[in-house]
């Protein structure tokens, strides 16, 4: 039961089907990677799981530890333990990172219980230090004026603070130089545990040199067309995707 299960999932945007029967199971304690060409539906999968209102699930299910989450609002899914690291994190003017994460942590507390500010900041600062995020960032507006690397580090910071059961990392490597990639990857690796399942969505094998997956899946035309061990990523890198879809 300790799995994130995607069962024969079909989803559309408007009339256009994007996911066409995708099935995948991510047990807790494992890191799975999804690779695929642009347009294969990778990012759609991430957004559908998180509950983005633009997408309609036409059939299939997503079960978090056995519980269907598709009827839930995005915030309910998140509080249940699902985390999505965005490919393009939103900028929110005037809302500081500290207040934003605080509201997210607060939302997980029982009604009427107030977050203890001192503990919160101690936790926040230690996690920022681990991700080499300067403390001055706490008073900056969420993602506003951040570099690509800063935005992605901020996503991983949020993940570290919210301690999800399952995390979906959507193209976390995009826009990162090699130094930022190393910091982000080590941040992700630090969160690996028997209590967390992760799905890493990426276009390039490069990220998987740093976040070593337990399984690699190839996505094409809205479904998983091939699954394998971590060396599958290397083969995709050297031979491209065409042999997968052609077979």
């Amino acid at each position: 039961m300790s799995t994130l299960s995607i069962c024969n999932l079909h989803a559309s945007i408007g009339d256009k089907p994007i996911l066409r029967g995708l099935t995948l199971e991510i047990p807790k304690g494992q890191v799975h990677a999804i690779m695929g060409k642009n347009g294969s539906g990778k990012s759609t999968l991430a957004k559908v799981m998180a509950g983005h209102p633009d997408y309609t699930v036409t059939s299939g299910d997503v079960l978090l530890d056995g519980e269907s989450i598709l009827a839930m609002e995005p915030d309910q899914r998140a509080r249940l333990g699902l985390f999505l690291a965005f490919q393009y994190p939103m900028e929110i003017p005037g809302v500081t990172i500290a207040n934003f994460i605080r509201a997210a942590v607060q939302s997980r507390l029982p009604q009427g219980e107030e977050l203890e500010a001192t503990d919160y900041y101690a936790d926040l600062y230690s996690k920022m230090d681990a991700l080499s995020i300067p403390r001055a960032f706490t008073s900056r507006s969420v993602n506003e004026g951040f570099s690509g690397g800063e935005k992605k580090r901020c996503e991983i910071l949020q993940m570290a603070m919210l301690q999800p059961k399952y995390a979906v990392l959507d193209e976390t490597d995009s826009g990162l130089d090699i130094d930022a990639l190393k910091i982000v990857s080590s941040g992700v690796n630090a969160l690996r545990s028997p209590e967390v399942g992760m799905l890493v969505i990426t276009h390039y094998q490069r990220l998987l040199d740093y976040i070593i997956p337990d399984k690699v899946h190839v996505m094409a035309e809205g479904k998983i067309v091939l699954s394998g061990e971590k060396d599958l990523a290397l083969k995709l890198e050297s031979e491209g995707y065409d042999w997968v879809t052609a077979s």
């Binding site: 209102p53 915030d75 965005f86 005037g94 809302v95 939302s107």
Partner: peptide, 26 residues
């Protein structure tokens, strides 16, 4: 922006408040 907040667990009414507060904070 609201979806981003909800994806962090923040209820929508609280998310709207945060966005409006941020709008004035600037």
């Amino acid at each position: 922006e609201l979806f981003y907040m909800m994806a962090r667990g923040i209820p929508p009414q609280e998310g709207v408040k945060l966005i409006v507060r941020g709008f004035f904070q600037t």
